[in-house]
Simulated assay, not measured.
Amino acid sequence: MMYWIGMFIAGLIIGVIAKLLMPGKDPGGFFVTGFIGIAGMFVGGFLSGMIFGTSPTAGFQPSGYIGGIIGAVILLFVYRLATKSRS
């Protein structure tokens, strides 16, 4: 249970970092960026764990956080493309 809460909080922070790395106008605002960070943390952390062979519940793993940031930046980019094409 604590693992999921930690991932949620880390995902919010990762979303803010992704927003700082990729400045610009987001149609969704802070909350959407936060949710993108959470999704990026889960996906990027999971994939980096598979690549580097670490357990997802092993605690702090720099590769998981780096993968989370990369995943959040990619998801933020895709989100911007999807919302840009609608308007």
Rank of each mutant, 00 (worst) to 15 (best):
K84D: 08
G24E: 03
I69S: 07
I38K: 01
G45L: 08
I66R: 03
A10S: 12
I66S: 06
F52C: 06
G29F: 02
Y3K: 11
V43Y: 05
A39C: 11
V73R: 04
Q61D: 06
I13P: 06
T54P: 01
V16Q: 12
G44D: 07
A18W: 04
M7K: 11
F30G: 01
T33N: 15
A58G: 14
L21F: 13
F52N: 07
A39F: 12
G68N: 08
I69A: 06
I69N: 00
F30M: 11
W4P: 01
F31N: 00
F31Y: 04
I17M: 12
L75T: 03
V16C: 08
G53P: 09
G6I: 03
L76A: 10
P56G: 04
M1I: 09
L47R: 01
G67N: 06
M41L: 04
S55Y: 05
S55Q: 10
I70P: 01
I17N: 03
I69W: 02
L21S: 11
M2S: 12
Y3L: 15
V32I: 15
K19T: 07
L47D: 02
P23G: 05
Y65P: 00
A10Y: 09
K25W: 05
I36P: 05
P27Q: 09
A58N: 03
G59R: 08
I36K: 05
S85E: 13
G59V: 02
A82P: 00
A72W: 03
D26L: 04
P62W: 14
A72N: 05
M7G: 12
G29R: 02
S48R: 00
A82L: 15
F77N: 14
G34R: 05
G53T: 02
P27T: 14
F77Q: 12
M22N: 13
V43W: 07
M22F: 10
P23R: 10
A39D: 01
L12H: 00
V73L: 03
L76K: 10
S63V: 12
I38R: 01
F42A: 14
M7V: 14
T33E: 10
P56K: 06
G11Q: 03
F8V: 09
T57L: 11
R86F: 11
V78D: 03
A10W: 09
V16W: 14
L75F: 15
A58D: 11
M7A: 14
M2A: 15
M50E: 13
P27C: 02
I66G: 08
G59I: 03
T54D: 09
F52W: 11
V32R: 13
I9R: 09
F77R: 14
M1S: 13
F8T: 12
G24Y: 00
V43S: 10
M1E: 12
